[in-house]
Nucleic acid binder design. Sequence first.
DNA 1: CCCGGCCTACGTCACTTGTCGTAGGCCGCC
DNA 2: GGCGGCCTACGACAAGTGACGTAGGCCGGG
Lengths: 225, 225
Amino acid sequence: MTLPSDNSTIGVLVVDDHAVVRRGVVAYLDALRNVEVAGEAANGREAVDLLESLKVRQQPLPRVALMDLMMPKMDGVEATAEIVKRFPAVRVVILTSFGEVERIHAALANGAAGYLLKDAGPSEVAAAIYAAANGDVYLDAAVARRLAQKMRSPHSGVAGLTSRERDVLVLIAEGRSNREIAAKLVISERTARTHVSNLLGKLGLHSRTQAVLVAMREGLVDPPR
Amino acid sequence: MTLPSDNSTIGVLVVDDHAVVRRGVVAYLDALRNVEVAGEAANGREAVDLLESLKVRQQPLPRVALMDLMMPKMDGVEATAEIVKRFPAVRVVILTSFGEVERIHAALANGAAGYLLKDAGPSEVAAAIYAAANGDVYLDAAVARRLAQKMRSPHSGVAGLTSRERDVLVLIAEGRSNREIAAKLVISERTARTHVSNLLGKLGLHSRTQAVLVAMREGLVDPPR
DNA sequence: CCCGGCCTACGTCACTTGTCGTAGGCCGCC
DNA sequence: GGCGGCCTACGACAAGTGACGTAGGCCGGG
């Protein structure tokens, strides 16, 4: 674990919809001498608003945001994009329960500076914060492995799909029929079926029901609640 | 919030696969004077083993176990059943992220003494522990509402399904075809289709793909990981 | 004992889904 | 300019799916 290059205290914003988790993270951070909890937020919207209000009051922004994915109001992927765009000085580290390849991709593509799983211990959280504050990117070992795994086989996962095929897959995972998909995407039902057939082939599946599970597993859609 | 009837310290076993969550819960509990963390476990198996080893060494068992659902090795529902059966003195309180009706039912049917959501604050956790220690059952308000809601409409949710139909629904939610379902359940494919058709009707659905989503929403199956 | 509900099973029909091949228009890259 | 990939679209066919009605055996409650 590398300490940050300067000695100043690192402000950290904790974003999670579960109070228990925020409490746990804060407990982790309290044990770190050069880290200070700069605030808490229960969802992405709150986080952005909080940063905004700090900015207008010309108060110092936290250097790092520890953020859950899967929150109401605004999820972590959206919030990351928003924060990276509007507050480039704030480095976003994802801290989430699940390692879905698709969300990992999305988060990193949106400028996340790290990705942790919630079974991480205090030292990993610390390492990720220090890395982020230093401008580095920290990936949980399990996450990195999963990412590398998918990289190696470029045509196995959802990564091998075209953007249109992903659109279709998302709709399949919402329980839509081919007809509905066609209507939503403003294409003919035949074309929708072409996309379905092609994506099933690429994923090595034989039915849309299985496709639903793959879409969930890869984090392409939220589990229904 | 009612304090426990006697003054002795309440031992609490914390069971969750996420270290951060355990840390948060422990932080909650540390603030309660008459509660003591009696141990931690990362899954149901560990929890049962820990209780077992305490028992053989004739050490006092915790009065309450705070348990997550959805853990590797042994999930919370199974673990609850096991603990209630083998260690009746230990009251199990569920503490989980999601309020799926089906799991709530399963957990309570297995003898859980409470059901909390992870967005609960410290006071709710405390109330649930005290209630459990007193022999009462504590239900999170949102959970109770959801439960009551489903009670009122006996034939809308998965509750209206026969046990065989639930079996079929679970297999549908695993992406199985009618033929596979028939093979698994050792019935004819026609019969499997009868069950499918009947359960779709009861749930007000028109395709097995939608049934997958309902099964997930109700907690009848785990989201695929 | 009879009734109701459940599980089993079949036939039939309509519809949906998935496969295969084909093909034109568009766009970006070399 | 040519080539490749993508999106669009169709025909035809096979297979899977879902709806409806029917029916026998079993079991538990009144």
